[in-house]
Design a protein around this nucleic acid. Structure first.
Lengths: 231, 231
DNA sequence: AAATATAAAGTAATACATCAGTTACCGCGT
DNA sequence: ACGCGGTAACTGATGTATTACTTTATATTT
């Protein structure tokens, strides 16, 4: 439970990169001792979301621009392979699931933004699963988790719905070429949006020492005014 | 230290899949308490090498034939992307490093087999790094770590040297097409060797213990027909 | 004389050990 | 074959030690 909650709070951007994660504070917040919190942080650090400075502390991992660019390029490789394989192997049932997830896309009011990102993740994860290669799906999912906070920060997602519809259509036809091309467009657009947004923000408060130590345990929403620092 | 040592012992196949990892025994072995061992196992489990059954125990992860096949296909995707990017971006210094690692390949006497696999890993990791994408390199490296034990088991590696020389040659020329093709051949050959070897071995000493209860991560189901590799 | 750098001491956080408790598994008996 | 009990393993808590960071004081340099 602690693992999932902590991980989610980092992924969606409630915890900012560079922020210190105090064992005692977290333990108090969850009403447990530090041991489960330690275990959770150790696990999360293996996914690259948390950095451990021995004898010093736990911190939300800071990401450099190069790392971000690398992640986005890797995502492109994996998403393209994924959609290509899926166009051959996807089943009717999986197509229906895709449609269902896609239909869940509502407006982009701020309060539903978290759910929106969840569904975007779900959409891409479903395609990866439809490739028939679970390893590919898991790898892509983990990568996606590390990218979501930047998507949230840069308000990626405004123009995703139409592309998603096109992808579903191409997959239904089994047209690998079109599916691949549309996916390439979406991934490229997302990449550019993120990189531009991040570069723009870079002057303000990229490396920071968070003065406000507000630490809330459960379900805090990302407010419009929140400055989310890439590190 | 414990993390690295335990991880290595699993990767090289010293610990067999399905084997129980007793906290107390390991702690005694390292001369510490169980806490550091716990931390190490938690971390290793995030890489998929160890499976945790809550309130029951820690076990070296068993791999199904499907999972193995998925991993090998994913490896193909990543290795091809890797060598393709590297053919454009690789530097003279990196080429020299590749030559040096390649030259380190000696015979295949059994006692140097571990070192041999280390060097094979190093070779592919260097190429991935030469792609300029560190994320790609690390993802491929993690995947490779999960595959090494099967390579060792199936004595993959006999005919790798000549292909490696061809790859270096193609990279030096910047010939992406040839490099890609040779890499494809090597990866395919490795895959077939592993799958054949695994299927052949499946009758003898593969399951050390009960085949009815299977331990898998991510809650996926074990199909009755699944061959459980090795141990 | 003032400012900066360095060193030392104190504080705060993690890492590890020990202990208590719960649970699953195995064997025995019915 | 089913159920019950015992044992052994993991999980979580508490306490202790080690380490890193911060602050302060002193000395040196400008």
């Amino acid at each position: 439970m602690i693992y999932k909650d902590l991980r989610r709070s980092i992924i969606v951007g409630h915890r900012k990169p560079g922020e210190r994660l105090d064992l005692d504070v977290l333990a108090k917040g969850y009403g447990t001792s530090v041991t489960p919190v330690r275990d959770a942080l150790q696990m999360i650090s293996q996914e690259g979301l948390v950095t451990i400075k021995p004898r010093s502390g736990y911190f939300v991992t800071r990401v450099t621009l190069k790392q971000l660019d690398d992640m986005l390029k890797l995502r492109e490789i994996l998403e393209l392979a994924s959609v290509e394989l899926a166009s051959e192997k996807i089943t009717e049932e999986q197509l229906d699931q895709l449609e269902h997830v896609h239909a869940g896309y509502t407006g982009e009011d701020d309060e539903s933004y978290d759910r929106y990102m969840d569904e975007n993740r779900h959409f891409h994860y479903l395609i990866a699963q439809s490739s028939g290669n679970q390893e590919l799906a898991e790898t892509l999912g983990r990568l996606h988790d590390r990218l979501v906070r930047f998507m949230v920060m840069c308000r990626v997602g405004a123009t995703l719905e139409s592309r998603h519809a096109l992808i579903i259509e191409a997959l239904r036809k089994g047209d690998a070429t079109v599916a691949r091309q549309v996916m390439l467009n979406e991934v490229d657009e997302t990449r550019e949006t993120i990189l531009e947004g991040v570069i723009q923000e870079s002057g303000s408060s990229w490396h920071l020492k968070v003065p406000d130590k507000k630490i809330t345990m459960f379900g805090e929403k990302a407010l419009p005014g929140d400055v989310i620092c890439p590190g």
